[in-house]
Design a protein around this nucleic acid. Sequence first.
DNA 1: CGAGCGATTGAAAAGACTCAACCACCGTGG
DNA 2: CCACGGTGGTTGAGTCTTTTCAATCGCTCG
Lengths: 216, 216
Amino acid sequence: MAMDHSILKVISSENMKLLDSVKHCIIYKAETDILTQGTQVRGVYCINSGKIKIYKSSGSGKEQIIRFAKKGDLLGYRTLIANHKLGVSATTIEECSVCFIEREDFLKMMVEAPQLREWLMEELSEDLAEMVEALTTMAHRSVRSRLCGALLVLEELYEGEPINLTRENLANFVGTAKESVIRLLSEMKSEGLIQIAGRKITVINRVLIKTATQFS
Amino acid sequence: MAMDHSILKVISSENMKLLDSVKHCIIYKAETDILTQGTQVRGVYCINSGKIKIYKSSGSGKEQIIRFAKKGDLLGYRTLIANHKLGVSATTIEECSVCFIEREDFLKMMVEAPQLREWLMEELSEDLAEMVEALTTMAHRSVRSRLCGALLVLEELYEGEPINLTRENLANFVGTAKESVIRLLSEMKSEGLIQIAGRKITVINRVLIKTATQFS
DNA sequence: CGAGCGATTGAAAAGACTCAACCACCGTGG
DNA sequence: CCACGGTGGTTGAGTCTTTTCAATCGCTCG
């Protein structure tokens, strides 16, 4: 299994043993809630396989998808470290295999493994930079431009497989209405930028789509 | 001077001596660039007094203000630690007194002071949570609602003093056009929510404004 | 088969932006 | 002292993107 950018990459073999002894692996079906906004976390979750949406719901019932997590990603550590309540929710969008690490065990690992602390700090930095980027994009760019950006991100997420999301999830990621996404997608299809097969979307002309993310 | 939530709060007296020996204090006039997006940082800046806008400019020349920094805030450390180029710019909006700490000196302090590392991690967490909040706000709420939210944030920033920003900066913070801000402000003035004296804005009815940030 | 969910399409409405003109204030230099 | 230029603030009108609402369709599952 590829662990190039995972927490497991930075764990010493000694701590790895510790980890093995405390983790609990679980399989979740698609559309299962893992974390719920406003609650405490009981520990952290490390994704082995499958994709999970991280989102925030606003008062009016709309949800904004912040990012998608996939294998190697760690969920819940920020909230756990700060001892806050969760600011976001997480729900599987496919069947997922996930390891759960109890709060106390994780904190212990953090104390003992400086590389882990290092890695978490880098993760936080990275995420923060991404959020700043996302914010300015949301503020300045048109729905079409944002949709193009989203498709490129999702292409990465799906690693060559066609993008497979409900239009609603796509809309909640882009930050727009479902109908707008549908209209723009069919526009882009007729321009030969993408291919659509039911729910599945395949990027055809990556270069032009990339260009579209630079303007408007 | 109040240092309740500053880097200086977490520095041991020993490190404080080190800090004193390596810092350089500088006074900047209003509208002076401190950090420039896309460049390397030469060190970190700690604000003694005055206010600074942190913003990101997009290709089309628009700028999005990410946040305002004031006394006690530290600038540039995220970029410095990650050894990246700056993702944002920083410009004073008032006369500011700022301490500069050379890159190497700061890294040395980080190695020697675990509380400093701790503090930085908390800062990052906090900032990340704020950015996530800002993103969903930008995506879901109307300009008026965002403007109300901005006014409450700025009221904090100005600590009781009237808010004193150009309409343009206010617009770039809210993520809208200058004209929209002007129109909405005069609307809110006629509703008795705020008071306007030239450039200066005073919040009158905090409760109603707060309510407005919950909807739309 | 019928219910239900997601996708699609059309039409109307609304929110926000752009453009353009104008004003008010302030500091400068003649 | 006053005319001048510049910056920032204000207002109005028209436009356009995007949303919302409503209706329809197609598919799957019980």
